[in-house]
Design a protein around this nucleic acid. Structure first.
Lengths: 325, 325
DNA sequence: TCGCGAGATGTATGCGCATACATAGCTTAA
DNA sequence: TTAAGCTATGTATGCGCATACATCTCGCGA
């Protein structure tokens, strides 16, 4: 920056000003500085800037996995907005091991981000401590909490599970099974579904659980087992993701079962292909665009309005009825 | 850090040493320092560290889109390895507008990453200049180049397109169509496929192009149009992604066509569901795990061996024949 | 006994910026 | 005419660390 100043015949601070508030520099000086920058290919050192100003324009984000489209698309919507406001995103994945979260949080916080986005609302005591200590805005997404660290944008997974059960009962399904993978939130949906469905119908809900990420292949496997264990007529299968649901549909088709008459399927997430598959998939829709955007907006108002604004927003969900149930 | 030092009865440097090379401080001192850190919840300021040491332990990554599983999974494999070596990833998306790449590169470089990962090998002159200027290792992935900026890990898209055409000819398909979306690389595969197929069979290859990301729904639409335009028997459809291929399969099924006898489909990417769909999808496999890992390893050896090692690696591809073609 | 080397710790300094404060040259209204 | 105010720029300083170099304390062999 000092070098640019020399080239333009001004001091370092004038260059700094030219970059951060061009209005404060005379037009001629500004032009000379811009020329010098263009000539040298100078790129400001944001690290030094962040150290000096205690503002990094960085947002840290922690998601279970980027390869899960569901998390990726929320992240995408979130970063689009933050990027538009001059923020960059620093990403980390926690994967399946929750103990990685603590290390990841520490690593992210060491970069002194201006805010941090977390997936889920359950964090270790040490993690909460570090977050509080950091003194920056925090958004927790994908879930609701009675004790949010700061901002929180999501929906109730228990409500979603219960709503799916009510939906199934309402459309006359008398027995049910679940196919569930992974995280704590999927398990809460399953539990709420099962509990409600069993209470209302007095029938036992069969559970197929996996502790690896959901895939179409596993969905087929699970459905195959359920069919072999004899799935009574008027059965519905509640899946923790559309991937499983899609697999269940494929397996039912291959075995010559008619959907939804022989077996019905409810997915979760309402991914793009849900509407286009054959039969089209009934699914619980979470508006991921809205989720990401709302999280971004929560942070932005939190930035402008200070620590007073603890924004908590329930974005809800919606059961989209198509052909599969 | 100075505060921690006070608590532990040592100076700031000793704390610094305790964190970066614990072997250089006596066990008792180390313990007192660790206690103080645990008590206060201190998180080192990596920004200051990076400024002082000119080493950020940050890797910048630029991908077209995180919501495209194909890019996301490579990124995932890449970050797993880099994370294991103490590096963090800073991500940016270029989206569909290539002019965003320049801005994104500048923004990323301003954080002074230790290396940068780019998708594709075509960059503007200004972008190349900034990258060269930054003086850090660069890996370009997903493609091969005669003039790589530094390291390059990928495969030839033209070869892949030609191989698909040869495969189609070999299995007796006499006419072909393509469904293509998006990037420059998909277009090159399409062109190579078309050119080779037309040369060998002397039949015209019909092209369905989209300039939005591929989805199952669009694949169905494209297939519907192709069928309505009358697809002769012994036809094969070469898709730029498995999403399209899956959609084509669904549409063919809905219309009562038999795959591959009435129409055959070749996908690209060999995503997880390709093997599990019904009929199972024939697809060009790119080992995304290997791609990500190889890129990471290229950077790591580049770090240890200096600017001499311009690593270029062709990871190739493989046509996986299943039921759809 | 003395000196020497190794281990443990400390002092001084600067990384490249942003910020607070100071200054110089103008304009404007009383 | 002059003080006040405004614009454009400059000087000094410190953000929180890592690094080079200095210092001190031992233990050990000559």
């Amino acid at each position: 920056m000092a070098e640019i100043g020399q080239l333009a015949g001004v001091s370092q601070v004038t260059v700094s000003r030219a970059l951060s508030s061009p209005g404060k520099v005379s037009p001629e000086t500004l032009k000379r500085i811009e020329d010098a920058i263009a000539r040298t290919g100078y790129v400001p050192n944001a690290v030094a800037g962040a150290l000096a100003s205690r503002k990094s324009n960085l947002i840290a984000a922690l998601v279970p996995s980027v390869t899960n489209i569901v998390y990726a698309s929320v992240l995408h919507a979130f970063s689009e907005i933050m990027w538009g406001h001059g923020y960059q995103i620093m990403l980390s994945e926690t994967g399946l091991q929750p103990d990685r979260e603590e290390k990841a949080i520490a690593a992210l916080l060491s970069r002194r981000p201006d805010a941090i986005l977390l997936t889920g609302v359950h964090h270790s005591a040490q993690a909460r401590r570090m977050l509080l200590n950091a003194g920056i805005p925090v958004v927790e997404i994908w879930d609701m909490s009675d004790t949010p660290i700061d901002c929180c944008v999501g929906f109730s997974h228990s409500d979603a599970g219960r709503a799916a059960a009510d939906f199934a009962v309402q459309w006359g399904y008398e027995t049910a099974a679940t196919i569930t993978a992974g995280d704590d939130r999927a398990l809460r949906r399953r539990d709420a579904f099962t509990s409600r469905f069993e209470t209302v119908t007095r029938s036992k809900v069969q559970a197929m659980d996996f502790d690896v990420p959901a895939t179409l292949g596993l969905g087929r496997e699970a459905m195959a087992k359920l069919i072999e264990l004899s799935l009574p007529p008027r059965s519905v299968v509640f899946c923790s993701s559309d991937q499983f649901a899609q697999g269940a549909l494929v397996e039912a088709g291959v075995r010559g079962l008619t959907v939804p008459d022989d077996v019905a399927v409810i997915g979760f997430g309402d991914q793009e292909y849900a509407a286009s598959s054959a039969p089209a998939l009934t699914s619980v829709r979470i508006d991921r665009q809205v989720l990401g955007r709302t999280a971004a907006e929560a942070l932005l108002t939190r930035f402008s309005e200070g620590p007073g604004a603890h924004l908590v927003k329930d974005i809800g969900f919606q059961i989209i009825r198509r052909q599969s149930a």
